[in-house]
């Protein structure tokens, strides 16, 4: 990689906002927009646009970071399917990152990040100032926050108000990579089942 800038793709389609960023040496091209239920229809249009804006092709990538959850099940899978295929095909390293880490990178202090799911419940990520995970769980967000009233809190719905520090992520996770076929989503929320009732008259 000597003699040229390292090119890194960040892909996060897991929650309320889509984050696609390309780091090319010291230049970051970051696109953020509100996620909607049209993600799978639009994601390639957005991806192509970001590559065009960054003036590189996917073949020039050196590494990929992908958000593997928690968040929308479908959103996570869209991101993972694309990122894993890219990394596998291009034979480049890939590292999954928690959705929370993207936003935790904006803070140089302990931070609790929340992502509401339904009712009062949602996903919580508690990270220390070194971007190290203290806790991640699916729980009642209000209850969790009341336990840590002195810790700063950030809600991912307000993602537009913070700037993700991609360089910090690159530095922190520079030596991390995982085998592509083994990469899994971190859904965090347990699957719950209703009894499968196939027939009303059963």
């Amino acid at each position: 990689m000597r003699g040229r800038f390292v090119k890194i793709l960040f892909l996060d389609t897991s929650s309320f906002f889509i984050n696609i960023a390309i780091a090319n040496g010291s230049v970051i091209t970051h696109h953020q927009e509100k996620n909607d239920n049209k993600l799978s229809e639009r994601i390639f249009l957005i991806l192509k646009q970001v590559f065009q804006n960054a003036d590189i092709t996917p073949q020039m990538l050196d590494k990929i970071y992908v958000a593997n959850g928690p968040g929308s099940f479908t959103g996570i899978r869209v991101g993972l399917s694309i990122a894993k295929t890219l990394a596998w095909d291009l034979k480049i390293p890939i590292q999954p990152l928690s959705t929370f880490v993207f936003y935790a990178s904006s803070y140089s202090e302990d931070i609790i990040i929340s992502l509401y799911d339904r009712d009062e419940k949602g996903y919580i990520g508690f990270y220390n100032k070194n971007l190290t995970k203290k806790e991640e769980e699916y729980t009642n967000i209000g209850d969790f926050l009341s336990k840590y009233q002195d810790v700063k809190h950030f809600d991912i719905e307000k993602a537009g108000e913070v700037e993700i520090d991609f360089f910090r992520l690159i530095k922190k996770f520079a030596k991390k990579e995982e085998a592509v076929h083994g990469i899994k989503a971190n859904y965090l929320k347990p699957l719950s089942f209703k009894k499968i009732v196939g027939d009303n008259n059963e």
């Binding site: 996917p58 295929t85 095909d89 291009l90």
Partner: peptide, 11 residues
Amino acid sequence: IMVAKTLSWLH
């Protein structure tokens, strides 16, 4: 579909 689209795009 996502995997196929990615490969189609790359190649």
